[in-house]
Each structure stands twice: as C-alpha cells, then as structure tokens.
Design a protein around this nucleic acid. Structure first.
Lengths: 135, 135
DNA sequence: TTAAATTGTACCAAAAAGGTATACTTTTAT
DNA sequence: ATAAAAGTATACCTTTTTGGTACAATTTAA
C-alpha cells in the first residue's frame, strides 16, 4: 500500500521544477544533486515526465529540462500516475478478471474497495504542486 | 499502491468465517476450497489471524478455526494490517528517517501525504465485516 | 492407537522495484 | 565546422518483496 520510491522521486523532481517556475531551464545533474537521486535514475524519470508532457527537454549546450504545465494544474495524482500507472488498491480494481474466483461482480468487498479507491484518488488529485512549493 | 494478494485472501477468509458466525468451527480445507486459496497458504494466513486473536484454532479430529470477534467489531483495516502491517502510503510515513535527504520535517509533500493516509485508514476502518456478509 | 486436524519453522521461486551501463543522437556556442 | 554538453533508447543487473511450498511435529476425538 505504498507509492513506489520512483514516484516519490518524481514528486521531488516536480517540486524542484515547480519552484523554479514554468519555462525555467535546469539540467538533470543539478536536479539530481539537489534531490538526492542518482543522475541516471533522474534522467529515467525525467524522460517519463517528458513523454507525458509535464515538462520538456532542451538539448545541446546549456540544455536541460523545463516545466510545461502550471503548478496549479498538476496534482500528486497526475505525477504518481505517470510513474506507477493508474491507481488500483486491489488487483481486481485494475482488472475485473483478476479475481481467481471470477467473483468480482458479486463480491461485497469489491464495492467497498472501489469506493475507498475513488475517494483516495480524489484526495491525491486535490493536492496541486502550487501548494507544495515554498514561495 | 495495492494491498497484497495475501491481504485479499485474508479478507475472503474472514468474510467466510463471518458468514458462518462467531464460534462456528470450520476446517482449513473447506475454507481453502471455497475461497480459491491453496491449503498451505490458507493455513499460513489463518495462523496470522490466530496470533492476533481474530480467530481461534481447534486442533485434532473435527478441529478447525472459529471466529473470536464480532463481525461488526472488525474492519477491513484491522484484517489488512494483520497481514500487511501498518498502513504507510510512502516509506517516510512508516519511518521518519527513511528520507535519504533527511528532509521529512520540512517536506511539503510529507504533510499532504500524511493527511491523505489518515483519511485512507479511516475509510478502511469504516468498513466492518458485518457489512460484507450476505445475510 | 490412529487418522484427521493444526503448528512452526524454514525454504524456494517468481515478480516487482530500484538502479546502472552502453552506445548512441542531437544541439548549439564558438 | 566541430567539439562539448546535453538528452535518448534499450537493455541489463541486483535486491527486495511477494507468493507459495515442504516437512516434521503436535494435538485430539473416537
């Protein structure tokens, strides 16, 4: 019942970029040093964030990465999902066929879990990066 | 961000026992067959539930397991914690020293995550096994 | 006493997570 | 033009967690 370490790192990285502000370019090495994530792993995460258009990369000398979205339009949910995929607090909530008893439709626990999950996702989505920066 | 498969099984097992009612003895093999969990694994889970006094065991011929608690006094939270341990949606919420930057005290995300976790645990605790049985 | 049941410990294998390496390609300041 | 700075892509390796199994021992009703 944890977000992954990688998602934790992604949050740090996005806080870093959000603090600098939209459009400000910073290189991977600087992020890596400040956020305590190895350079290679930082790059891997940055690539995923690029792919989902949260940030963009700038190649060549003096290149780096910059924020594409507004901090108040990105939530913890958004960033966590980039790394960990869609939220699913039990496997039957990701895939109805995952239940080895094929009982999803009639399982009383299933409904309860789905309600909890919906609420959880909602809460993660309430937290925007604009709230997470020291300004 | 998932409960473990084992916790899922534990929930099934406790629903099974709750349906039979407090004090009713059923053997592990019957539970195993009905809930789609291998006998050995069922036994392992039952042992953990015993240790935490959710159920008790009856050894010898015609032995088995029976519920000790009232279904309306046991929640999903209770059973999940027996198997997965305390809820922690990020490692810094299980152990303050887990942050490799030692930043827990000043991390803005930390507070937000703690709030979400508290709410999550509350929701899991709201769901009692008495609601999960077909009666 | 014996068959049916649980107990406890230890072990094993598969999957997921975390992290690294290598060999590129692109960009751009000079 | 070109070399250095930067990102790209893919693949690999290691560790941890999870899921599951084995086996010998113990208990007890009949």
């Amino acid at each position: 019942m944890k977000i992954t370490q990688e998602a934790d790192y992604a949050i740090r990285i996005m806080i870093h970029l959000s603090t600098l502000g939209k459009g400000h370019i910073v290189d991977a090495a600087t992020i890596s040093e400040n956020e305590g994530v190895t350079l290679r792993f930082t790059l891997k995460i940055l690539r995923k964030l690029c792919k989902e258009n949260f940030i963009r990369s700038h190649r060549g000398v003096n290149g780096g990465y910059s924020l594409l979205k507004n901090p108040d339009e990105m939530s913890l949910k958004d960033v966590i999902e980039v790394i960990d995929g869609h939220f699913a607090i039990n496997k039957c909530l990701r895939d109805e066929n995952a239940c080895n008893l094929g009982r999803t439709a009639t399982c009383n626990a299933h409904e309860a879990l789905r309600d909890i999950q919906d609420l959880l996702v909602q809460e993660f989505d309430k937290v925007k990066f604009s709230q997470l920066i020291n300004k």
